[in-house]
Amino acid sequence: MPTPRWVAHANKFSLNLITRYIAPWAPGWALVVHRGRKSGRVFRTPLWAFRRQNRYVIALTYGSESDWVRNVLAADGCELRTRLRHYEVGSPRVYRDARAADMPLPIRLMLRYVLRAPDFLSVDILRELP
Rank of each mutant, 00 (worst) to 15 (best):
W25C: 10
R85E: 06
Y21S: 04
A59H: 11
I107T: 11
V57Y: 07
W48G: 14
N71V: 04
R96C: 13
L73Q: 12
L105N: 10
S39T: 13
T19V: 06
K38L: 12
A101F: 08
A49G: 04
S14E: 02
V72C: 05
L31V: 08
R5N: 11
T82I: 00
L129D: 00
A117G: 03
E88C: 01
L121F: 08
R20Q: 12
G63R: 01
I18P: 04
A100E: 05
D76G: 11
P118G: 10
S64Y: 11
V114D: 03
L115R: 12
R96S: 13
Y56H: 00
W29Q: 14
E128M: 06
L73V: 08
G90A: 15
L60A: 03
P4T: 09
V72S: 04
L84K: 15
A117C: 08
A8G: 14
S64A: 15
Y95H: 12
A10N: 08
R99M: 07
G36R: 09
L109V: 11
P24H: 02
S122Q: 13
N11H: 10
W6E: 06
T61K: 12
L115M: 14
Y95Q: 09
A26I: 04
D119S: 12
P130N: 09
L31A: 01
F13Y: 15
Y95E: 05
R83L: 15
A26M: 14
R93L: 15
A100T: 02
H86Y: 08
R93G: 03
F50T: 07
R35P: 08
A49T: 07
Y87C: 00
D97V: 01
V32S: 03
V114M: 03
R96W: 09
F50H: 03
V94W: 07
S39L: 03
R52H: 13
L115Q: 12
T19C: 07
R55M: 11
W6K: 09
C78T: 09
L60E: 02
P130V: 06
A98C: 06
L129T: 07
T82D: 00
R83W: 10
P4L: 03
P130T: 09
R20H: 05
S39H: 09
Y95P: 04
R99L: 13
Y56G: 00
F13E: 05
R41E: 06
A59S: 15
T19G: 04
P118K: 05
L73E: 10
V69R: 11
P130E: 10
L73R: 11
V42D: 02
R5Y: 11
V94Y: 06
R44Y: 00
